[in-house]
Amino acid sequence: MTVSVRTLALWGAAVAVLAFLLLPLLLVLVFAFDASSVQVWPIRGVSFKWFVATWADEEVRNALFISLEVAVLATALATVLGTLAAVGMNGLSSRVVQVGSFFLTLPIALPGVLTGIAMNSFFTVCDIPFTLLTLVIAHTTFCTVIIFSNVMARLRRLPPSLMEAAQDMGATPLRGFVTITLPLLGGAIASGMLLAFALSFDEVIVSTFTAGTQTTLPLWIFGAIRLGQHMPEVNVVVFVVVAVTLLPIIWGQKLAASVSRE
């Protein structure tokens, strides 16, 4: 009996914590389907009319496209840079790797405000206008970190004898890298890409300082809430952002788990 009471208490606590974390989010997601235009609980009826209205809003649509564009470009750039950085650093002494990793991970370790301000001043000083390009560059800095640490972790677990075996059988280092290392890194790179994409898609702070006149989806939400307008549309956009962010994260974690099982 005592066991079941303890189990019950444990489950109760777990549910309470989850509710504390997730209820506000759930509320917003439910309001996205509200038939009324004033947010009052309980919702008056289920409807998709705000989805239709939001899609019709050109501002939101543009913001969505910019967010997607930035996330895709930043992820692509970061994939190349992060993988190269990890592969390049892998053979070096552990101290070099430590120092290198420290500087590479700074964009994520530092508060976003600092990264944002630093980027902003840098672009201003260099006389680079704030466009989609600046946004992509800014996002690439922290996306690279994700790819780098993912690939680095996988590389550490690859026995060096694999590359030696490839060379032993006549492959040049480049050929060995392409035929052995790269395929074995594939899972780690893919899961890193998904996480990087998600991170870029819902980023607010760095974007605030580097977007110029561009508006990403999270920036649009931010603006709409400050002005207190378009509240039903905000709920819909939040719904979309959550979906687009969560799916790659879940997928990426599954990938990472299957990679580590190998």
Binding site: P159, S161, L162, E164, A165, A166, Q167, D168, M169, G170, A171, T172, I180, P183, L184, E262
Partner: peptide, 18 residues
């Protein structure tokens, strides 16, 4: 190594897992 007519059997076998 790739220019030597030698093949090695490694201690951990070094088989390509993929």
């Amino acid at each position: 190594p790739y220019q030597r007519d030698v093949n090695t059997m490694f201690q951990d076998y070094a088989l390509f897992p993929h």
